[in-house]
Structures are given as structure tokens and as C-alpha cells.
Design a protein around this nucleic acid. Structure first.
Lengths: 248, 248
DNA sequence: TATATTTCAACTGTCGACAATCGACGGTTT
DNA sequence: AAACCGTCGATTGTCGACAGTTGAAATATA
């Protein structure tokens, strides 16, 4: 049973009086995540402010919050845009993800309890189940959840925060595609060796398997990007003016 | 003689219309870097705006830019503050730095040319020279420059950007101390094994040496932090109200 | 003297407004 | 027909203002 009486511990999280700027940032984040805003789209502060029913100041502040995360770019005197990748940059994001996750996973291995390992394994099992049920949308979500758990177990909140930022960017890309793998069970299967390595407490193998897993994912995404499915800035979708805008 | 007629090549660099927000961010960054603003300090947008001779809107936008980098924290209805570390967080920053630099250095090893290696070696030589001349301030700057070169050679601009962000935070800490090592030549010496490993193209040794080097630095900083030299939030320096502010 | 209450100036979050600038459009020239 | 140019509406960057809070000094209370 849990404690009945209020102890010295804090019982409630301080509910923070969220300022509009952060709420705007969250809102835009969601919109990017579910594809309402697509990479390359212009985000006119005046328009957004009107839609949200607030003034432009907090909207601009919210967009600035996203700017240094790399999700939004501002071209001075031209406005804010949802950041749009080229193939090289996509590679860099995946490289960074590999960097962070390998480091976190390595730390996780020495920090995690048997219960943690069970939770990770259960998560992979969930991925398998979702694959057989054909719930690909939910599978993508739970895939991210697995990798997030790994980062969390690494114990560095800073790295976890960066993972979350990158995850938001990748979700933006995935929202455009809808489905990443032709074979949904492939997602699940490629997680098994990672669990095995963790169970064996074999650092080198963990690094190797995780690296391979991530590079697999990278190849899938980059290929889709090259074929145009992930690329919002397909030349034929752009007016001449918009193209010049992106080029400068 | 140069060409007389304009050719197809570009003749002018695009002069970028720097908006005030980013300039404010740079300004605050500098102030944090050289110790004019210390961790924990309040940054009142109204005051800053008056000092800079501009209005509050771009100041707030600039601070928001720094907020998601973690350098500035905003407590709603209370204002902006220069982020102040506890020991745990300092450890996390160094852990992240290790993560990024090891990854970048590993990539750098396979990408760099002999000329790049010479430049790195020359930079370490510079560190030695500065040590004998007793130029500790400049040595810290050039120390960062060395590690930045390493990250740059890694070829991932995303990682380089993160390094720059972290570097800004660490400079903030170092500005408080003034001098990190009791023996300035120690800074220089601890770089030698890294060059050796690079020269030998030995990945494992590079990782090992670099990790040790960074953990060395971490120990120095954390120790100074614990003794209070680096800690701006020393209890005796804070009013009761300020303490409560930090605690919540 | 120490603690609780009130007062008050300073600051924050947000808004609406204005001038400067940008991209688009249409007319003009080669 | 293509390139150029100037105009126009739309949008941006910035500003000053206002109401609501906040922290701290001033005052009252024990």
C-alpha cells in the first residue's frame, strides 16, 4: 500500500502557469508531428496569431524557441519556415542520433536493473504484437518509446532532451510517409538483437547491434527521401519564387 | 590581372540583414562567456532593452533563442535567468560533451587529411607555447579551438553546433574561475596522447585517450564547483527570496 | 528582536500600431 | 519572347502602452 498521510515528500507537481510562448511552441510541434505543418511550409506569425486568437508577440517568441532546436528556421525579413532537410542533413541527424543513443545505451547497460531490462523486452514484444495486428501507426509510436526508454535508462537528462528534439524532427518526416517499412514485422525483428546484447551485458555487441539497427532505419528513410516521398520540397511542388527562396 | 568583366561566378557575399533577436542572443552569449552575466543572474528584459537601446520584443525573442539551448531559463511571471548548474547537471554536460566529441573524433580520424592532422598538432604546440608564456586566458580559448577543430573534422555540422552550444556553457563556468588548472602546462600535456592516437590511426586508443582527457577536465571543474569557486549559487551569496526562487 | 502584514515600485506578459521591406503582378523595353 | 522595372498589397520587425504580478521594503504585531 502507498502512504496514507502526507509525508515530507512533495505531493503535487507545481502546475506551471504556462506562458503563451511555450504553448505556441507545443502547438507548432504537434502540428509538425502530425503533418499539419510540413517541412518547408511557411509559418506566418500574423496568421498563426489570428488562428490561435492571440497577438503576434508570444507567437514569435514560441517560434524562436523552436528555432534554436533546428525545427524552425527564420529567414530575416522573410519569415519563419518549418525546417526542410536535404539528404545530407538527414544523414547528419541520423548520425547524431546514433551518437547519442550508443552513448546512452552503453550507460544504460551498466545502470539498468533486471526490471528495466524486462520492461525493454516487453516493449519489443509489443512491437511484435502490433506488427501481427498490422497497427503500423501505433508501431511507429511504440518504436520511438523503446528508444526513448533506452535513452532514459542512460541517466543523462540532457541527452534525453536531445533525443526528444530529434524524435520530433523524425516524426515530422515519418508523418509525411505514413509507413516506413514495407514489412511491419521487420521493425520488431530488428530490435531483438539489441535486447539480446543487453541481456548478455555485452557492450561491444550492443554498440554493434544498435548501430546496425539505426543505420538500417537511416537507409529506409534516406531511400524514401530520395524517391521523393519524404521530400516536401519536391521541385515540381514549388513555384519558381519559392524555389529561389529556398536556394538563397 | 583580375578579370575586368563580371563572370558567372558570384562577386559578392550575401550581406545578411541580422535581426535584432539574434544579435541580442549573441550579445547575451558574450556577456555570459566573459562573466558579465553569471549563472543564476536575472536577466530583466526591460533593463536589457534599455541598455541596448531597443525595445523589449526583440530582446525577449533573443532570450527565447537561448532558452531552448539551455543557457537561459525562464520562470513564468518571474523572468529570465542565466541557467545555473548543480553538480549533477555539470556532470551531465561533460558526459554529453564526451559523447559528442568521441563520436566526432572517431569520424575525424577516417576523414582527415595529413594536413588536417598537422593543423591539430600545431594547435597543441600552441597550447604548449602559451603554457610556457603563462598566457592562461588565451590558452583556454585555444584549448576550445582545438576541440572544436576535432568536431569540425568529424564532418557533422549538427554535432559541431551542439559543441558550440556546450562550449558557451562551459566558458560561462570557466569565466567564473579564471584559471582551471593550477599547472598551465598540464592542459597542454594532456593533449599529446590524443595527437599520438590520431597519428597512429588507432580508434580504440583515441577513444580511450580522449575520454580520459575529458574526464580529467571534468574532475577539475567539478572539484572547483564543489569548493564553491565555480558555484554562483553559493548559499551565502543568496537572499532568502532568491533561494526560494531557485528551489521551486 | 523576530515574525506577520501591508505597501509599493518594478517588472512581466501581452497587445495593437506603424514604418520598412518583400514578393507578386503587370507594363515597358529590348 | 524574354528580361527589366516600378508599383502595390501583404507581411515582417520593432515599438510603446497597459494591466496584472511579484519581490522587497516598510510597517505593524507579538
Amino acid at each position: 500500500m502507498h502512504d496514507q498521510r502526507p509525508s515530507g515528500r512533495q505531493l503535487f507537481d507545481a502546475l506551471q502557469p504556462a506562458d503563451l510562448a511555450t504553448r505556441v511552441a507545443d502547438e507548432v510541434l504537434d502540428a509538425i508531428g502530425d503533418g499539419r505543418l510540413r517541412p518547408g511550409d511557411k509559418v506566418a506569425d500574423a496568421r498563426l496569431a489570428k488562428e490561435l486568437g492571440i497577438s503576434r508577440a508570444p507567437v514569435r517568441e514560441g517560434l524562436r524557441l523552436l528555432e534554436s532546436q533546428g525545427l524552425i528556421v527564420s529567414h530575416p525579413r522573410r519569415g519563419f519556415f518549418v525546417h526542410s532537410y536535404d539528404a545530407d542533413e538527414l544523414k547528419e541527424v541520423y548520425d547524431l542520433r546514433e551518437c547519442l543513443e550508443l552513448h546512452a545505451a552503453e550507460a544504460a547497460m551498466s545502470r539498468m536493473t533486471p526490471a528495466d531490462l524486462d520492461r525493454l523486452a516487453a516493449q519489443v514484444k509489443l512491437l511484435h504484437d502490433l506488427a501481427t495486428e498490422g497497427q503500423t501507426q501505433e508501431q511507429v509510436v511504440q518504436d520511438f518509446a523503446f528508444h526513448r526508454m533506452l535513452c532514459e535508462l542512460g541517466g543523462n537528462s540532457r541527452i534525453l532532451r536531445l533525443f526528444d528534439q530529434i524524435a520530433a524532427e523524425m516524426r515530422a518526416g515519418i508523418a509525411l510517409v505514413g509507413q516506413l517499412y514495407s514489412d511491419p514485422s521487420e521493425i520488431a525483428r530488428t530490435h531483438d538483437p539489441i535486447i539480446d546484447a543487453l541481456r548478455a551485458r555485452d557492450v561491444d555487441r550492443l554498440r554493434e547491434e544498435l548501430r546496425e539497427h539505426l543505420q538500417d532505419a537511416q537507409i529506409h528513410v534516406v531511400r524514401l527521401f530520395r524517391t521523393g516521398a519524404l521530400n516536401p520540397a519536391r521541385t515540381e511542388d514549388l513555384s519558381e519564387a519559392e524555389r529561389r527562396l529556398i536556394l538563397r
